[in-house]
Write a protein that binds this DNA or RNA. Structure first.
Lengths: 149, 149
DNA sequence: TATACAAACATAGGAACCTATGCAATGGAC
DNA sequence: GTCCATTGCATAGGTTCCTATGTTTGTATA
């Protein structure tokens, strides 16, 4: 009930997740900065990479962030010329978001940076270990998503 | 070189880490809120739980965050009565930070919440799988920490 | 049709992270 | 002892996340 190990961060997977995520974001953001991109924008780029037009709501759902978070990010991306927002002809409350041509041109370079980071992150792990890791991560994510506050 | 899977978030462990970390933070913060604690404060609580007094610099290093991040968090924690800062008699630039009695009294309840979250997070995994996961996470963290921007 | 509910977005406010930079105390070189 | 680089913090500015709440448009119901 009061095991001292409870407070040992090394026994808390949560601590690892937080530190790995922060580290990846920090390194990724620096590497993407020259391109004018950021790691938090990757889900948006992914969703729109083939010329698609999605609403803010759809993008928030895809990226698994709350609506105000996506609203702010799209504002910044629009300010920086990364995306375009045109009124949705079928719903005056909504806008359709798409990538600008300049952004599409940046995608290949972004791809290379991502691939590089991905391989550095799993350096020293066998293909089987990586598969195991992804499978365990998937399981944990499912548990986390089903956790009630 | 331009494999479309490069943009598939399901193939990017980084995406899992980010989503798991965010999910754990969100749920953990809600559950700790009644106690007046937050997940980001856990490393500080851990470091000082036995009555220790550490400097801001030492706490930042322990929590693996930058110095300004720790400065801000300690300000909030002091504002909320969680920690105390007394001048370091041996270095007038520095203060020694310690937990208040009120905070120490909250620790057992915090422990219970942590243990509960930890078990929910790994629900459905065997002890061996959890051990494997932690070992892989440790490996990835090491890689991430050694990544150059 | 009028009213009420729901949906899409905007805005406010705050926490936690970062980099860049400034300031004051310290401590070593001379 | 004086000078100067280093160290410990503080502050500024910005991004990404959250919750809570308001506004406008769309939809369905009485």
């Amino acid at each position: 009930m009061d095991n001292p190990d409870d407070w040992d961060p090394l026994r808390h997977p949560g601590h690892y997740f937080s530190r790995i995520a922060r580290g990846l974001t920090r390194v990724g953001d620096v590497r993407l900065r020259n391109l004018g991109l950021a790691t938090a924008q990757l889900p948006v780029l992914t969703a729109l990479k083939d010329g698609g037009e999605l609403s803010q709501k759809e993008l928030a759902k895809w990226a698994k962030v709350e609506q105000p978070t996506m609203a702010q990010m799209l504002s910044r991306m629009e300010r920086d010329g990364l995306v375009r927002r045109v009124p949705d002809p079928e719903d005056k409350r909504s806008h359709l978001i798409s990538l600008t041509d300049a952004t599409v041109e940046k995608l290949p370079a972004g791809r290379a940076i991502l691939r590089q980071g991905n391989s550095e992150m799993t350096k020293g792990l066998t293909d089987d270990e990586i598969k195991t890791l992804v499978s365990l991560l998937r399981h944990v994510l499912e548990n986390v998503d089903s956790m009630e506050p």
